[in-house]
Design a protein around this nucleic acid. Sequence first.
DNA 1: TTTACTGCAAATCTTTTGCATCAAC
DNA 2: GTTGATGCAAAAGATTTGCAGTAAA
Lengths: 143, 143
Amino acid sequence: MNQPGDIARKLREQGYRLTPQRLMILSAIESSDAHISAEEIYAQVVAKYPHVNISTVYRTLELLKRLGLVTETDFGEGRVRYHPAGKGHHHHLVCQDCGAIIDLDESVLTPVKDVLLREYKFSADLRHLAIFGRCVKCRAKKA
Amino acid sequence: MNQPGDIARKLREQGYRLTPQRLMILSAIESSDAHISAEEIYAQVVAKYPHVNISTVYRTLELLKRLGLVTETDFGEGRVRYHPAGKGHHHHLVCQDCGAIIDLDESVLTPVKDVLLREYKFSADLRHLAIFGRCVKCRAKKA
DNA sequence: TTTACTGCAAATCTTTTGCATCAAC
DNA sequence: GTTGATGCAAAAGATTTGCAGTAAA
């Protein structure tokens, strides 16, 4: 659904400048398999270009978020994580005991999305929703 | 389901001390209709007892959370909010445009809870879940 | 009396911002 | 050449922590 460089092209189309910093930040986000945090993006970029500042990372993420090019997920770690908006959505089950993150197919929550839209006229943004609770292992441990 | 003083009794039962600070913090939480933040609890308590420190509020909330006596909800405001765990649960639809918070009955998500338990053996804690998206009004405004 | 709890002050951690400079277009 | 983007340093805001004193039991 998304090719590397996709986000860059969209930025350019909307009249934003493609600076080397932005390109490196984009590459970090696009090449990440999992969801990535601002600090992690910064670490990757600094490795190649020691001059960048973390405020640039935050400003770029803010821009991408505003344009709907990346989504934010809060896994309850005290910082949010980012993911390319077009890269396929899924939900996450986050274990409050061991911190395990289990992926959940997008389809599981589509019925909910439909109900909310139909009955509440509310358009839910369920991309990368995190649901907290307790995983199998930790439940076994308790018993 | 919960009487005022309920949390205090449970604390006492578990061997924790009932200090005046804790009692005032509990009263602020229990008497709040909506979900309340640490800062708001602190403001209420300080009004009666100017000596208290906000770190005591945080420490008490941490304790109550650990004991499962209060639940935490993140409405995406950059701070979390608290609610007595036994006081009736509901979910929230949070509009990302206007900030409106719409209450959703607990029953709406019970099917999801069941699926997660059955198919993923994951015990989801859906108390006071916040779902982000766009409300009727803001959707109309866009069109 | 014992030690859990508190106040205070300072630290921490993430994110934001003002401003002068710089570079993408 | 314009002006949007950056680096830097400092601020902001929420939460946490070390420590010595205090009070609940």
